[in-house]
Write a protein that binds this DNA or RNA. Structure first.
Lengths: 116, 116
DNA sequence: AATATATACTTTGCAATACAAGGTACTAAA
DNA sequence: TTTAGTACCTTGTATTGCAAAGTATATATT
């Protein structure tokens, strides 16, 4: 067991949340997203991102629009739908619960509810 | 896509960390662990826990000792090995990075490094 | 002794998903 | 026409959470 694998496992499921968080701030296309996640210290590759975006689109949490690029082929700009915004709020709750759980286990005693 | 599935995915990978955190405080056997995680608001079932404990043991992060019970069959008490303690510190870092990433994406701008 | 109940540990099969690796398509410059 | 750059997509694999069913041990009841 190596640390990289463990970190990768830890990111599972978080990715979806992070992408919705990111798109909550505004539309973006795949390379945008990868770049912005990298700046937030989350490394994602194309093979991970594209299927995930497609899945979220099929679930009606995201939609996209083609937009011309001044340089290169057109881009798919993804944005949250209303369902996506609502779903994001659920994930916010789930994240809060998870951090709360870890805090309980770390401290060994009391719960600290993090509100943001 | 339902919220339960998303939450389940989010917990993936975190489980390992939570179990190591829990065992860091002292040995426990499976039903113990399930109970303590439930108190920390993390629902885990046997079919998830047993294979995970076995894997962690095979990776030399955990060891166990049989102990008699006053009521029922003997129990496998699991505890962290030295490797397990070291690995836990790596997961602490990974967790800190992840919360940092989410905080960056949530706030939209600045990083807040959480030290515990 | 035989049966029932509670407790604890284990295994099998399935579904979800991160990732590596390779592929397709479009644009513009050499 | 070729090359380089950008963007999007697909296939195959490994990992792992979970439901469900199974095995084993100890104690109480009949």
């Amino acid at each position: 067991m190596n640390t990289e694998n463990a970190k990768s496992q830890m990111r599972k499921g978080m990715l979806e949340y992070c992408i919705l968080l990111l798109l909550h701030k505004g539309p973006a296309y795949a390379s945008d997203i990868i770049q912005q996640l990298k700046e937030a210290q989350l490394i994602v590759v194309e093979g991970t991102l594209y299927p995930l975006l497609t899945r979220l689109k099929n679930d009606r949490l995201l939609r996209y629009e083609w937009q011309e690029s001044t340089q290169g082929p057109p881009r798919k700009y993804y944005a949250l739908t209303l369902d996506g915004e609502e779903f994001l709020r659920h994930l916010d709750s789930a994240w809060n619960e998870l951090t709360n759980t870890v805090n309980i286990l770390r401290s060994g005693s009391e719960a600290e509810v993090v509100l943001t």
